[in-house]
């Protein structure tokens, strides 16, 4: 292992990490918003929008992110929708993640017993109030393990960003291997940087999950 080379590449990988993290977390935030919107549309059975949302969820859950990014980045400009690589990465991740988040929220909502909304109704709450103050908080807390899994999944999926010419970790590694052929050092750094990005989330995830389980036992 050539430590001189590693030292030399370190800043490049650091920049790539920042870029990946920035676009990754923006995408995850977008995914969260889209997922929540989709869940609300499905939950309240809003006509027309509901069918569209179901179609969107099925479409994005059943296609790879790589293909989605290719479509957004290379195909959409042909019909006049040109966007930057960073925006493409964010939107792609957001759309993919939104479909997964919606699925997770939906199973969270299904976990809330019907009696909860019935009790809320008997207390004179409107449907909107019952949803906002009674059902949603419980649904969110029971879908937390699923959400953490989604976040890890989406952060891992950022590895395909390099295909739309974003200078992320994969791009940097591939580029450096191509230029200097220090394969082992480059791959070593690649693994280390993905660990830096994902290990904290994974550990945090298992702590939250354990807490959730304890909360359930308590009640």
């Amino acid at each position: 292992m050539d430590f001189g080379a590693i030292h030399e590449y370190l800043p490049l990988y650091r920049d790539a990490l920042f870029l990946t993290m920035r676009i990754g977390w923006q995408g995850i935030l977008l995914a969260f918003v889209i997922g929540l919107a989709a869940t609300i549309i499905l939950h309240f059975r809003i006509p027309v929008l509901r069918q569209l949302t179901s179609f969107y969820i099925e479409l994005f859950r059943n296609t790879p992110l790589l293909v989605q990014l290719f479509f957004i980045y290379f195909a959409l400009p042909k019909v006049g929708l040109r966007i930057t690589p960073a925006l493409c990465g964010m939107v792609g991740l957001g759309l993919l993640g939104g479909a997964y988040m919606a699925e997770t929220f939906r199973s969270g909502l299904e976990n809330v017993p019907l009696i909860q909304s019935e009790s809320a109704a008997s207390l004179g709450m409107s449907r909107m109030q019952a949803f906002r103050y009674v059902v949603l908080p419980q649904a969110v807390s029971s879908s937390i393990p699923g959400l953490v899994a989604n976040v890890i999944f989406l952060l891992k999926e950022t590895s395909v960003f390099s295909t739309v010419s974003l200078m992320d970790l994969m791009f940097t590694a591939k580029d450096l291997i191509g230029m200097y052929a220090k394969t082992v050092e480059c791959l070593f750094l690649l693994v280390v940087f993905y660990l830096i990005m994902l290990l904290p989330v994974s550990i945090l995830g298992s702590i939250v999950e354990r807490r959730m389980r304890r909360a359930e036992f308590g009640s």
């Binding site: 891992k156 590895s159 791959l187 693994v191 993905y194 660990l195 994902l198």
Partner: peptide, 19 residues
């Protein structure tokens, strides 16, 4: 759980040749 499949692909495809 943590490593993207793409990283694993790179390790197996490029790494094993080298090492």
């Amino acid at each position: 759980r943590i490593m993207p499949q793409m990283v694993l692909l790179f390790i197996v495809y490029f790494g094993t040749t080298r090492v």
